[in-house]
């Protein structure tokens, strides 16, 4: 106490600190002939969260002596269908010529209102192949051989061949590691390669444009090539 009285600077600092720590304003009143204004101490907000869902009252919970089943997330009342939509069921590359890349796009749209985030995983059944599976168009490795199924890289050179894809956000920020002219390989199921996320999001909705890029060398056999690419919407746990 003596220290406080002897050192005014220390006293001032002490008072300031106490005012900040208390986190509340003192009550005040102001009055005149026609009015009285009273200001009360503002109670700091105290939030009382709802307890976890009572299982017995929840219609999405089934409980017997032998089992308990819970459908969906208990903190999401919505029973909306999670959905995935593609703007097309086929990518037609048309007529294409060596060192003249073709690009085709589809939109993938996701609604995951009844989940806490999601991934869209992509894969191909095999690289583009002719009906006999003798001639293949391999998956691209991008300009300097830097891209893979999980790493995107620049592909601008017309002397870089193969099939690859990129993803551009149309709604939200779902696309995984991508950008203009950045491409990846499709994971190849025939080689046992794991699915890779093309979208990942904690938001409820997402929409992206998937651009397929195809370029062949002059030595590529003239034939009709095809494969199947798959987009799987998988909710997070």
């Amino acid at each position: 106490m003596k220290l406080l009285l002897r050192k005014p600077l220390f006293f001032f600092f002490f008072l300031t600190l106490i005012t900040f720590l208390s986190g509340s304003a003192p009550a005040q009143s102001l009055s005149g002939d026609q009015f009285i204004i009273e200001t009360q101490e503002i109670e700091q907000k105290t939030y009382h969260p709802a307890p976890p869902v009572e299982n017995s009252k929840n219609q999405r919970v089934t409980k017997t002596d032998n089992y308990q089943i819970v459908l969906g997330f208990e903190d999401i009342p919505s029973e909306d269908f999670n959905s995935i939509e593609s703007s097309a069921s086929i990518i037609d590359y048309g007529k294409f010529y060596p060192t003249n890349p073709v690009e085709r796009a589809i939109d993938i749209k996701v609604n995951a209102k009844s989940a806490h985030g999601y991934s869209v995983l992509v894969s191909e059944d095999h690289p583009l192949s002719d009906p006999s599976f003798i001639n293949l168009i391999p998956d691209t490795s991008c300009d300097r051989g830097l891209c893979s199924q999980s790493i995107s890289a620049v592909w601008e050179d017309n002397l870089t061949y193969g099939l690859g894809y990129s993803c551009e956000n149309l709604k939200g920020s779902s696309c995984v590691a991508t950008g203009t002219k950045l491409f990846k390989k499709f994971p190849d199921e025939s080689k046992g390669e794991e699915y890779e996320p093309v979208f990942e999001n904690h938001e409820q909705e997402g929409k992206g444009e998937i651009i397929y890029k195809l370029n062949i060398s002059a030595s590529q056999s003239n034939s009709v090539y095809s494969n199947t690419t798959t987009y799987l919407l998988v909710p997070d746990l």
Binding site: I84, D92, T228, T230, L232
Partner: peptide, 10 residues
């Protein structure tokens, strides 16, 4: 022409 089929799944 040459093509890629597009499958979707959930």
């Amino acid at each position: 022409n040459s093509y890629s089929n597009v499958r979707i799944g959930i």
